[in-house]
Simulated scan of single mutants.
Amino acid sequence: MAGTVEFPVLVRLIGRGPRESAGVGCLLRYLPEDPFAVHLQFPGALTEDGEDAVWVFSRELLTRGAAGARVGDGDVRVLPGRPGRTYIQLRSGTGAALLEVETERLHEFVRASEDCVPPGAESGWLDWDAELTRLLYD
């Protein structure tokens, strides 16, 4: 079985006004057992409760967004940024954040995830019995 893909990434929070934020080290993770998704993990030092925060969204969304498309219509959107950069917009009931990430780093992550589980082969990696049990009983 293919292993987990983990890539540290530096993200910069884009704020309103003239303030520029420092980069924050985050982790992009791809799990073969969750083959349609990517996980973006923020360190607990950034959260009110001190726990790591993880956003989970579509690998296809990240792939298309890193390729220059404006994608997403829900809580996560990916769109082109300034040259060599991609924006990831995160929205929740409590706020929103616009993150800037180096596009090439996203491409490297996507390629590594595709080496792990090729596009179109994702459904073969799912444990359908476990997914059904989770849906029915969780």
Rank of each mutant, 00 (worst) to 15 (best):
Gly25His: 12
Pro80Asp: 01
Leu79Glu: 03
Ser113Ala: 15
Leu46Met: 07
Leu136His: 13
Gly74Gln: 06
Ser58Arg: 05
Gly15Trp: 12
Pro80Glu: 02
Pro80Trp: 01
Ala2Asp: 08
Arg85Tyr: 00
Ala53Gln: 06
Arg134Trp: 13
Ala97Arg: 07
Tyr30Trp: 11
Val76Gly: 04
Arg29Asp: 01
Pro32Lys: 07
Glu33Val: 11
Thr86Gln: 00
Leu61Asp: 03
Gly120Ala: 12
Arg134Val: 11
Gly93Glu: 13
Ala112Gln: 11
Cys26Lys: 05
Leu135Asp: 09
Gly17Trp: 12
Val71Asn: 00
Glu6His: 12
Ala45Trp: 07
Gly120Trp: 12
Val38Tyr: 01
Ala112Leu: 13
Leu136Phe: 15
Gly65Arg: 00
Ala67Gln: 04
Val117Pro: 06
Asp52Met: 03
Asp49Arg: 10
Val71Cys: 00
Leu90Tyr: 07
Gly50Pro: 04
Arg134Pro: 05
Glu51Gly: 04
Pro119Lys: 09
Glu102Asp: 15
Leu135Cys: 12
Ala22Cys: 02
Pro43Arg: 02
Val76Ser: 02
Arg70Leu: 01
Val56His: 05
Pro119Arg: 15
Arg111Lys: 13
Val24Met: 11
Arg134Tyr: 15
Gln89Asp: 10
Phe42Arg: 04
Arg64Pro: 00
Gly50Leu: 03
Leu126Val: 15
Ser123Thr: 14
Gly50Thr: 06
Pro18Leu: 13
Asp73Ser: 07
His39Met: 08
Phe109Gln: 03
Arg85Lys: 11
Thr103Val: 14
Thr4Cys: 09
Arg111Met: 12
Arg105Gln: 13
Leu126Glu: 10
Arg91Val: 07
Glu48Thr: 12
Leu61His: 03
Val78Arg: 00
Phe7Arg: 15
Glu100Phe: 01
Val24Lys: 05
Val38Gly: 03
Glu114Ile: 09
Phe7Thr: 15
Gly23Phe: 08
Arg91Tyr: 06
Ala112Cys: 10
Thr86Pro: 00
Arg111Ile: 09
Arg91Leu: 10
Asp127Ser: 14
Arg29Ser: 12
Ala45Cys: 06
Arg82Met: 02
Leu136Gly: 11
Gly95Glu: 03
Trp125Lys: 14
Leu28Trp: 05
Leu99Phe: 07
Trp125Phe: 15
Ala53Glu: 06
Pro18Val: 14
Gly95Ile: 08
Gly84Glu: 01
Ala37Ser: 13
Phe36Gly: 00
Ile88Cys: 05
Val11Arg: 01
Phe109Ile: 07
Val76Glu: 01
Glu60Val: 12
Gly44Pro: 02
Pro32Ile: 07
Gly84Asp: 05
Leu99Cys: 06
Arg82Ala: 04
Trp128Glu: 08
Asp115Met: 15
Val101Glu: 00
Thr103Trp: 04
Phe109Cys: 04
Thr94Arg: 13
Pro35Ile: 10
Gly25Phe: 03
Val110Leu: 07
Ala66Gly: 01
Met1Leu: 14
Glu122Ala: 14
Val54Met: 11
Ser113His: 09
Glu102Lys: 15
Pro119Ser: 12
Ser113Val: 07
Val11Cys: 06
Gln89Lys: 10
Arg134Gln: 14
Glu33Cys: 08
Thr47Ala: 04
Gly23Glu: 09
Pro80Phe: 02
Ala2Met: 09
Leu40Gln: 01
Ile14Cys: 09
Glu51Asp: 10
Leu28Asn: 03
Gly44Val: 02
Asp52His: 08
Val38Trp: 01
Thr63Asp: 06
Ala53Arg: 06
Glu33Met: 09
Gly81Gln: 04
Leu132Gln: 10
